[in-house]
Nucleic acid binder design. Structure first.
Lengths: 192, 192
DNA sequence: GATTCGATCCTAGCAGTGCTAGACATGAGA
DNA sequence: TCTCATGTCTAGCACTGCTAGGATCGAATC
């Protein structure tokens, strides 16, 4: 059985290599540059090997998205746990969110702009995505205010952050005033 | 000179046809289906004709975006002018915005998601885009509150609407509660 | 140790994409 | 009527995601 186990290990390792390489290439040159040929060349295998791991390019994007969701959730939890009081936590959360989007634009795209074939906001939503939303919810639920469902409040706050992140990165909002926007957003939306 | 004038008229007409056809095709089957071949076939000309009007597909997307910006600005102005009081106007604006995004998803994408080669938030920003932002500003400037720059407030409110619009349409937010989200957004952000 | 045979991988190719060079026709002005 | 510029099309380039089918390699059997 050890032969088969070794093969499975190698296979799993190659799959990680594919995801890591796709992510790296996407961060370096954008998702448009992530073609199956270039990706295959970088991992030093032929194109069809990719298809023995993933159904297609979409699933590769999805795999990067799941990896990113886990990291993003961790980043947000780390940021909020280091802050004192609900308001400070919300600030830390918002900054961590936008910071992650700025530092990992390709991963952010895989998560929230591209089609990675993942289910969102449903029962069969993958655990990493649920956990990332939970990280938002844990912090934002504190400041939803009376009579407002924490889930709904989280969705709205998240949507606002997402809007700021995407419009800024696509050059539709000048990046200089991001800090002021966050202050306005937190100041008005959060109830302390 | 009348011959030349006639030719220019015909040329302008054909350009309108290209833009209208691209928009129609995009609304029917999505922007991925708008290929230069299909577009050329629909307007009953060969592909290179497209390139005598536009530098490439990107510019065609940009042309659709400009057309859409004009319509969107008009829709928002019509909605706000029919409402009484600042708060009612903001509600009407938000609903008109999301309504436009829902009814014209391809145009909305051309405006705010795809790259149409247009300059945003700059001096050389095309007039229709400036006007659409002005339509937002005219309404939202009323409820920015003391000490908050109307421009900044408008950007933040716009970003929130954009987030709700895009996350909902890509299936990342359940569409049922859009109305509650708008109420929360207006209730907390607008100062009356 | 030789031989089968299945898993694994690669070469080559399909139908499609955006875009363009160069041949061709058409019609306005001399 | 002839010339020639303008406008249009055919054909092709280099690329895309994806796949069929042949070659190869190594594990298990005799």
């Amino acid at each position: 059985m050890s032969v088969q186990e070794r093969k499975e290990r190698e296979r799993a390792g190659r799959e990680r290599l594919i995801v890591a390489t796709a992510r790296e290439l996407a961060e370096q040159q954008g998702w448009d540059a992530v073609t199956t040929r270039r990706l295959a060349e970088r991992i030093e295998y032929s194109q069809p090997v990719l298809y023995s791991h993933f159904r297609g390019k979409r699933e590769i994007i999805g795999a990067v998205a799941l990896q990113g969701a886990t990291e993003m959730a961790a980043a947000m939890r780390a940021a909020t746990s280091a802050a004192d009081g609900p308001r400070a936590r919300v600030y830390a959360l918002a900054r961590a969110y936008l910071d992650f989007a700025t530092r990992n634009p390709a991963v952010y795209d895989a998560l929230f702009q591209l089609d990675g074939g993942l289910a969102y906001a449903q029962e069969d939503t993958p655990e990493p995505l649920k956990d990332a939303f939970a990280a938002l919810l844990d912090c934002l639920g504190e400041v939803a205010g009376d009579g407002v469902a924490p889930g709904l409040f989280t969705e709205v706050f998240w949507a606002a952050l997402h809007g700021v992140a995407t419009l800024t990165r696509s050059g539709r909002l000048p990046p200089e005033e991001t800090e002021s926007r966050v202050e306005l957003l937190v100041g008005r939306l959060a109830v302390v």
